[in-house]
Design a protein around this nucleic acid. Structure first.
Lengths: 112, 112
DNA sequence: TCAACATATGATAATATATTCATATGAACG
DNA sequence: CGTTCATATGAATATATTATCATATGTTGA
């Protein structure tokens, strides 16, 4: 914990910043952090128009399978993508339109 | 560089993922990365309703001045906040409504 | 059941990141 | 000018993160 700060630490549920609790802000940062890695963003973009299996993603991103799987796990855990098995392959897809929206918005921002 | 990957490396300007260049995606990840730290998110929220100087931010976040200044520098460099001097104090504020929008959107996401 | 393929996972090493401490810069005012 | 207050910055340390390698798991079909 790269923290310290003279504690008697107030609880994060109670400490407000603006009108939001500290905990909510921590969750929010956690969410953005997921989008804040180029491999994960690439995966999400790759899934933008439909599901793909792991091998396809590896080819699209030109990265090795293990790296992709590790990042997919993070995306899965964060509920940003869903997975379904079909035979030997596992197909990943964007979890919901929220994800799509966030991506779209970021895209607009950098394109301006 | 935690990279490797059997190069002859295509240029990042040319390699498309979905319909976006690799470089654009790297920039996009870079943007989200800024929002992906709880201290920075807290600062941004703290500035949501108007400018504040560094001391005020330190008090609001209950963090030491150096840590805040370091993060403010990152936010400044990324053009997410602006700064103006008034006497001894320096007042920071959100750079534009884009920032406000991104924050607002994230807020909605976690509140759902 | 075994081989081959697709994906996941654990450990490790390289790198990046954030906070702290100490100190520097810069403004204001006697 | 020298002191004080406000902020910035550099170095060091602790921690987190990512890609890689090796290997495990799970599925299919002969």
């Amino acid at each position: 914990m790269p923290y310290k700060h003279d504690d008697i630490e107030e609880c994060h549920d109670c400490h407000l910043i603006g009108d939001v609790t500290e905990n909510e802000l921590i969750d929010l940062a956690e969410l953005f952090k997921i989008f804040g890695d180029s491999t994960r963003i690439k995966i999400l973009f790759d899934l933008f128009h439909g599901e793909k299996n792991v091998s396809q993603i590896c080819e699209d991103l030109e990265m090795n399978q293990s790296a992709i799987s590790h990042q997919l796990k993070i995306l899965r855990t964060s509920k940003l993508v869903g997975a379904r098995r079909d035979g030997k392959s596992i197909y990943y897809s964007l979890a919901d339109d929220h994800v799509r929206m966030i991506i779209e918005m970021g895209k607009e921002h950098i394109e301006e």
